[in-house]
C-alpha cells in the first residue's frame, strides 16, 4: 500500500491521535456543535492554504496573500456599499479578479527579476496594504452596512440541528465551497499538464525549462491562482463574519504557511498534496481552537502555532535532508 507510506498517511495518523487525545482531555470536543464550528473555521484558512500550497510546490513562498485577500474583500464590499449593489456573482468574480491581478504582479516580478519570492511578496504585501488603507479607507464596514446578499450567503447552512435547550446550530455550506475548490485543485495538479508543470518547476526549474515547459506560464498560473484564491477567501470571510475590516488577516500568513508545512509540503518545492494541506489546516485549526477546551490560556496560542511550525519543518527537514555538504 503506497498510501500507507506516504506523508499524507502520517499526517492523518497524527490528526487521529490528536483528536483522541483532545477528546480524552475534554469530551466536549466531540460535540457536534464544536465539530461544526471547527469545520467552519477551516474554510477561509483552508482556501488560502490551497494557494500557498501551490506556491510552495513551485518552490516559492508567499506572504502577500493576506494583503490580497484584504484588497479583494475591502474594495468589493466598499464598492457594493457605495453603489448600493446587492448581488453575489459579480462581487465574488471581482474579488477573484482583484486577487488574480495582484498575483500576476507577483508572478511578473518574481519571474522577470529572478528575485527571491519571500522578499518580493513582502514588498507587494506592503504596497497593497498601504494602498488599500491609504487610499480606500481604514474604517470597518459593519453588519448594519454590509450588503445583505453577502451576509445571507455567509449564513447559509447545509443543515441545522437543535440543542437540548432549543437553540439551533448548523454546518456552514461554505465548507462545500472549500472542499469543492480543494478537489478541483487536486484534479488540476494531478491530471493536467499545467498542474504537473508546477511540480516539475519546483523540483528543478532548469530541467523544466530544458524539457520545454514554459516556466513563465507556470509562474503566472501559480501566483495568479494563489492571488485569486486569496481574493475569494477574503470576500467569503467578510460574508461569514458580516464585517469587512481593512486591517484583517494581519499575521494570518504564518498560520496558513504553518498549516501547509504541517501538511507535508516542502519549501524546496516539488512536494505537497492537496489532501495533506487540507489535513494540515484541520490540525492547525483544531489545536488552536481546542486550547480552551484543554484548559490552556489563549495567550499561548501563538506559542503553540509557532512551535508546531518549527516541529513540522524539523520533521520535513529531516525527511528532505540533503547531502552532508
Amino acid at each position: 500500500m503506497r498510501f500507507l507510506r506516504s506523508s499524507d498517511a502520517i499526517i492523518l495518523a497524527i490528526l487521529a491521535v490528536a483528536m483522541i487525545f483532545i477528546g480524552l482531555v475534554n469530551p466536549a470536543f466531540w460535540q457536534m456543535s464544536n465539530l461544526f464550528s471547527l469545520l467552519k473555521e477551516n474554510v477561509v484558512i483552508g482556501i488560502m492554504a490551497l494557494g500557498v500550497l501551490l506556491v510552495m510546490i513551485s518552490g516559492g513562498i508567499d506572504v502577500s496573500f493576506t494583503a490580497f485577500a484584504v484588497a479583494g474583500m475591502y474594495l468589493v464590499v466598499r464598492s457594493m456599499v457605495a453603489l448600493d449593489y446587492n448581488g453575489l456573482v459579480l462581487p465574488f468574480a471581482s474579488a477573484i479578479i482583484i486577487g488574480g491581478l495582484l498575483g500576476l504582479m507577483n508572478a511578473g516580478i518574481i519571474h522577470k527579476f529572478k528575485m527571491i519570492p519571500l522578499i518580493v511578496t513582502l514588498g507587494t504585501a506592503s504596497v497593497v496594504r498601504g494602498l488599500v488603507l491609504g487610499l480606500v479607507g481604514t474604517s470597518n464596514v459593519n453588519i448594519n452596512k454590509m450588503p445583505e446578499a453577502l451576509v445571507n450567503f455567509g449564513k447559509t447552512d447545509l443543515f441545522v440541528l437543535e440543542r437540548a435547550n432549543g437553540s439551533t446550530y448548523g454546518l456552514t455550506a461554505m465548507i462545500v465551497i472549500y472542499l469543492g475548490l480543494a478537489v478541483a485543485l487536486h484534479l488540476v495538479l494531478k491530471h493536467t499538464m499545467i498542474g504537473r508543470s508546477v511540480y516539475a518547476y519546483g523540483a528543478d526549474p532548469e530541467a523544466a525549462k530544458r524539457v520545454g515547459f514554459s516556466t513563465g506560464k507556470t509562474m503566472i498560473f501559480v501566483y495568479v491562482t494563489a492571488g485569486a484564491l486569496a481574493g475569494f477567501a477574503g470576500l467569503l470571510h467578510s460574508s461569514m463574519i458580516w464585517l469587512a475590516n481593512p486591517r484583517d488577516f494581519v499575521g494570518l500568513e504564518l498560520d496558513v504557511i504553518a498549516a501547509v508545512v504541517l501538511g507535508g509540503a516542502s519549501i524546496f518545492g516539488g512536494r505537497g498534496t492537496v489532501l495533506g494541506t487540507v489535513l494540515g489546516v484541520f490540525i492547525l485549526v483544531m489545536i488552536q481552537n481546542s486550547l480552551i477546551l484543554m484548559g490552556i490560556d489563549t495567550t499561548w496560542q501563538r506559542v503553540v502555532v509557532g512551535a508546531m511550525l518549527v516541529a513540522a519543518v524539523t520533521v520535513t527537514a529531516l525527511r528532505d535532508r540533503r547531502a552532508l555538504v
Partner: peptide, 18 residues
Amino acid sequence: SLFPTLTVVENLALNTFL
C-alpha cells in the same frame, strides 16, 4: 535534467504530452 520528486512514469510521459 530529470525531476527528482516526480515518478518514473511522470518523468517519461510529461515530455511527450508537452
